[in-house]
Write a protein that binds this DNA or RNA. Structure first.
Lengths: 136, 136
DNA sequence: CTACTAGTGCAACCCGATTGCAAAGATTAT
DNA sequence: ATAATCTTTGCAATCGGGTTGCACTAGTAG
């Protein structure tokens, strides 16, 4: 696992206090987080600073954003080597009971045959249901 | 193609002025529409009435909603026989240029192998890119 | 040290979604 | 047909996530 400093250096994002703490927080959790989640977890850090940090991270492919249908955009750290290309896609699983979003890195996404002349740029695949913890 | 009245009767939704005009509008367009789209198209119908109509339609499986990542929920009429089950799933294609959302009924969705003990309830598959019209 | 650039915090704003409430319309019981 | 009841509609207000303007601070370069 890379440290925050290493990741920021590799992705050429300047290291600042807010960036370090936000990235550390995201790394410490295995589930995708919303702006509000992060805000609540980091009470002394301003919301708009977190927001701008997330935008910066996204632009520089430190994290990727997920629309899981919960109404809030969620963010997760990119896997090592991820370029956020269509080939780096993975499913996201949104648990309708506990409201958590999982990255399903191990579930392959098949080729999608688009109609003629449609061009794929990216995709957002969210599967909803019950996670192992809630499905008991 | 069924008429508005037939659809509402089959889905056991009472026929009212707003419902008829909203459903007719959705049927007349092949692209998924947002609340705002519909509101703009039906200037003499109140937004909250349209909103509640859409909720009613969704509960009764007259339409289904789509989160295409544009920030607005979009709605499209269910195909005949649709129960909004996982098996009725289809991809949606969101054109990043013209901002339209297409239902890709003809593109099959493969089986998704979830991790052990995860339960699939529904899925939201949005592919983004350029539509045939914008990809020239 | 000074000038410049980037990052941060606060408050305000935007906009889609949603709700409270009263009036209008439809339905049922008398 | 009338009264009582329930549903739908329209308007206005509110909520909440996302976003921006602006001034202040910190860090960087000359």
């Amino acid at each position: 696992m890379q440290t925050e400093e290493e990741i920021l250096k590799i992705k050429k994002v300047k290291n600042t206090a807010v960036r370090t703490v936000v990235l550390r927080h995201l790394l410490s959790l295995e589930k995708a987080q919303s702006l509000k989640d992060i805000e609540n977890a980091l009470p002394y850090t301003d919301r708009s600073s977190i927001f701008r940090t997330l935008k910066t991270f996204e632009e520089n492919k430190v994290i990727h954003s997920i629309e899981d249908g919960s109404g809030m955009t969620k963010y997760a750290v990119c896997a090592e080597g991820c370029n956020c290309d269509p080939k780096d896609l993975h499913y996201h699983f949104y648990c309708t009971n506990c409201d958590r979003t999982f990255c399903l890195f191990d579930v392959p996404i098949p080729n999608i045959e688009l109609p003629a002349n449609f061009k794929l740029q990216q995709a957002n695949m969210v599967v909803k249901g019950l996670c192992d913890n809630c499905n008991r």
